Amino acid sequence: MTPSSTAMSTDNRFRLSFTVETDGVGLRDFLADCGISRRTLTAVKYKGGEILVNGEEKTVRHVVRTGDRVMVIFPPEKPAEGLFPEEGELTILFEDDALLILDKPAGQATIPSRDAPSGTLANLVAGKFRAEGTPATVHIVTRLDRETSGIVCIAKNRHIHHLMSEKMKAGGVCKRYEAIVRGSFSEQHFFIDKPIGRKEGSIIERTVRPDGQRALTEVSVLETDGIPGKEISRLSVILHTGRTHQIRVHLAHIGHPLEGDTLYGGCAERISRQALHCAGLSFSHPLSGVAIEVTSPVPEDMRAAGGFRR
């Protein structure tokens, strides 16, 4: 049951269509098999959505037949409270009716906070949605720290956000980072499997601790350069879990903090921010199942900090 999304000129609510392939199934169960959660169905029922079978509105108690065409029209969404739409430049790597994938520069927060209430990626996306008449709030699927550059994935609907979250939990989303660290490595490919939790006395820092949440990081050494004792290494890093500051904490724990990451012991001589960039994102599309692979080139400040040949 591969869904299709459609749009109407007079009604820009997000919608999905499905064709029934099994006779005599309750509409609620059919939609559950299509990946639509009970919470989403409740929102459809009470917040301005519709469920149509062959063009006629039905309740979830309706029994569908083979060949029936089911359309779910999702309710319009309002921007989250405190998220003010703003105009600004966005670097779009991929976009369709369901997803928006962007290239975030270092120094820009992903979402508003007390310290950064405006100018964030989410503010600019909300402005884009408002300008285009997209009735949605901003659903961040993959978030980056303010000083980490690279790929950020955003869902255009709460249902798509749910599907992507489930895909991430199941390991169906691969995020690849590039990092610059001080020192050389005896192994060219290895895993760091250490639990991470909040550092005592800090609301920001994380640390490896026995009672933390499991965190698994895969590291490949791409290149090492420099004289003995003062080497710089370029790493490819894949996250298998998504803990706060995971790459920064794990690399610092093994004695190789990110260049520029002074919070975790890195040196700021070569670069003024943590040398970390989300360079690749791959997954199967939550609606079509088509393989999506997006890449982002490493920015100039990291290339300069590493001094590598590329």
Rank of each mutant, 00 (worst) to 15 (best):
residue 180 I to P: 05
residue 76 P to R: 03
residue 196 I to P: 04
residue 296 S to N: 02
residue 94 F to L: 14
residue 283 F to Q: 02
residue 4 S to F: 14
residue 14 F to R: 09
residue 151 I to E: 05
residue 84 F to M: 14
residue 148 T to Q: 06
residue 209 R to N: 09
residue 150 G to F: 06
residue 38 R to G: 07
residue 309 R to S: 15
residue 300 E to Q: 14
residue 72 V to K: 00
residue 245 H to S: 12
residue 144 L to G: 06
residue 294 V to R: 06
residue 5 S to A: 14
residue 258 L to P: 02
residue 258 L to G: 02
residue 70 V to W: 01
residue 264 Y to Q: 03
residue 165 S to G: 05
residue 204 I to W: 04
residue 208 V to K: 09
residue 21 E to A: 12
residue 116 A to I: 03
residue 179 A to D: 03
residue 16 L to A: 09
residue 266 G to L: 09
residue 137 T to F: 07
residue 288 S to C: 08
residue 31 L to M: 02
residue 287 L to N: 08
residue 149 S to R: 05
residue 122 A to T: 06
residue 240 H to S: 11
residue 237 V to W: 07
residue 179 A to I: 02
residue 54 N to S: 04
residue 43 A to K: 14
residue 126 A to P: 06
residue 97 D to P: 00
residue 203 I to P: 00
residue 154 I to M: 01
residue 149 S to I: 02
residue 194 K to S: 14
residue 159 H to P: 05
residue 22 T to D: 02
residue 188 Q to D: 15
residue 73 I to K: 11
residue 163 L to N: 04
residue 281 L to F: 06
residue 128 K to H: 11
residue 284 S to E: 15
residue 283 F to D: 08
residue 154 I to A: 00
residue 253 H to G: 04
residue 3 P to S: 07
residue 170 A to I: 04
residue 38 R to V: 03
residue 288 S to L: 05
residue 5 S to T: 14
residue 120 T to C: 05
residue 47 K to W: 09
residue 193 D to A: 11
residue 153 C to Q: 05
residue 266 G to C: 01
residue 60 V to Y: 10
residue 274 Q to W: 05
residue 310 R to W: 15
residue 287 L to F: 08
residue 251 L to H: 08
residue 218 E to H: 14
residue 119 G to K: 06
residue 287 L to P: 00
residue 158 R to G: 10
residue 210 P to D: 11
residue 258 L to R: 09
residue 24 G to D: 01
residue 250 H to Q: 12
residue 216 L to S: 03
residue 206 R to G: 05
residue 18 F to C: 00
residue 114 R to Q: 15
residue 18 F to A: 00
residue 168 M to Y: 03
residue 24 G to L: 02
residue 302 M to V: 04
residue 248 R to A: 06
residue 121 L to V: 07
residue 148 T to R: 06
residue 196 I to C: 05
residue 15 R to Y: 01
residue 131 A to Q: 12
residue 124 L to M: 12
residue 118 S to F: 11
residue 32 A to L: 06
residue 216 L to N: 05
residue 84 F to N: 11
residue 31 L to P: 00
residue 135 P to R: 06
residue 162 H to W: 12
residue 233 S to Y: 12
residue 198 R to C: 08
residue 74 F to D: 03
residue 300 E to F: 13
residue 259 E to M: 15
residue 281 L to M: 08
residue 69 R to S: 11
residue 234 R to F: 09
residue 14 F to E: 07
